[in-house]
Amino acid sequence: MAKIKGAVVVDRERCKGCEVCVVTCPTETLALATEVNSKGYHYSYAANPDACIGCANCAVVCPDGVITVYKVKVG
């Protein structure tokens, strides 16, 4: 069966750490970092990148449009 593999790229400097993407993600790929960006926000990052299915829900709800999503079919 064909499987979809996804990848998210977060623009860390623009992220405001609102956490909306983290609760939206169906596969718990994203999490907030313990480090902060130059504005002092705990930015979002792909903590579990292997789980990403490229559904783009995180990018769609992101108020600041900092997430870019890619996906490929494997197998």
């Binding site: 990848a7 990018a59 870019t68 999503v69 490929v72």
Partner: peptide, 26 residues
């Protein structure tokens, strides 16, 4: 291998400018 232009699933609209929005987080 995944992050290539041909695999793009979602990207911010081209009509959005590069300015960082002043709105509060969320």
């Amino acid at each position: 291998d995944i992050i290539k232009p041909e695999n793009l699933a979602y990207k911010r609209s081209k009509l959005m400018t590069d300015n960082v929005m002043h709105y509060c987080p969320g």
